[in-house]
Computed example of a mutant assay.
Amino acid sequence: MTQTAQAVIKSNGKYIWLWLVPVLAIAIVALIVWRNLPANGVSISLYFKDANGLKEKQTKLLYRGLEVGYLEHLSLSADKLQVKAQMQVDQSIAGLLKQGTQFWIVKPQIGSTGISGINTLVSGPYITFSAGNGEAQKEFQALQTEPIEQDEGLKFTLRSELRSSISPGDNLYYKQVPVGKVYAYQLYSDHILFYLQIKPDYQVLLRSNSRFWEQSGLEFDMGLLGVSVSTAPLMSLLSGGISFATPVKYGEEVNEGYQFILEEDGDEDWLKWQPKISLDEHIIRESGQQDNPSSFVPKTLQSGVETPDKGKG
């Protein structure tokens, strides 16, 4: 009787790892996709006048320096007059998306407060916002530039025949120190009205007989001894600004909404005025932060520091 031989197939373990390569690759791709999916994200719509450097999947939404979303899709609005930016926003900041929330594009620019957005030269423009306090909202009319915030302080107006180079956002200077801002202007048929605000710490300098002039550009004075050149602060050379001075015999403090006249030209004598008006004692750092002088003096030595007498002189 003949016996049939049976073939025995043995698995070779050294080839099993070849099947693991594609499986592992699929797992890695799935992990990357999963990590990039928005976690409980919120979709909102922003409307801009133009795209202005915005790019899908690249332009970020930042809030206080933290990335909280990104630009998902760009398209024209229904009326074809604006650009609609569909944003994907983290759920963590959804509570800030309310009526009154303002969105704007951050990009490199030179203004009266300095050079801003310099980091976007490499990363490109990004979008940021200031939170509102109304009802929840998912569609917003965005701004092209950062809004001018009105802080606490006395508001007043300046009447001028021409706008010249003055714009909202320009600084108000006293002895070339920024003490306030221009936040708006209004056109009338025969004049321009500028709206300004001075910081609370400095509003005591503003008197009924204060004089105002545009602080911008180069000034040449030719005389027998040659030519002298005076310049405004660097930032006011670039974007304008307004200076004011108060006489030694200063007038009364002014109330909210008081109107001054913007002089056509400044007078050199105004810069020499030294009114004895007491201010709160502050040391201003380069960053603009203010500190009480005593904070710079060790407590063991403060008893020997003389404080000038305050009062009207």
Rank of each mutant, 00 (worst) to 15 (best):
V29D: 09
G217V: 11
S43G: 01
S123Y: 01
D79H: 08
A51G: 00
K299I: 12
Y258E: 11
L61I: 15
P293S: 08
V229E: 08
K199V: 10
A78R: 04
W213A: 11
I93S: 10
V182T: 13
L193Y: 06
G117A: 09
R159V: 12
G169C: 07
T300S: 13
K60G: 01
G53N: 00
L187A: 12
L37I: 11
D265W: 05
L54N: 00
I16Y: 14
F212V: 08
L18R: 11
L96Y: 13
F103Y: 03
R207K: 14
S303I: 04
Q99V: 14
W273Y: 13
S239Q: 10
D309E: 13
G266N: 02
R163F: 03
L97T: 01
F220L: 15
V33E: 11
L218A: 09
S75H: 13
L24F: 10
Q91G: 15
D280S: 12
V23E: 01
I118M: 13
K175T: 08
D291H: 13
Q99W: 03
L279A: 08
Q141S: 08
S167E: 14
L279V: 08
V204T: 10
N40H: 14
G226S: 12
N171V: 03
F156R: 06
A94V: 06
H282F: 15
D50Y: 02
G132M: 09
S295L: 10
G169Q: 03
S45M: 02
Q88I: 14
A131G: 07
N133K: 14
V177Y: 07
S77E: 06
S75N: 13
L238Y: 06
N12R: 14
S239M: 04
K55G: 00
V23P: 00
I44Y: 01
L158E: 12
I192G: 01
R207L: 07
E263L: 11
L262W: 02
Y185F: 15
I242Y: 04
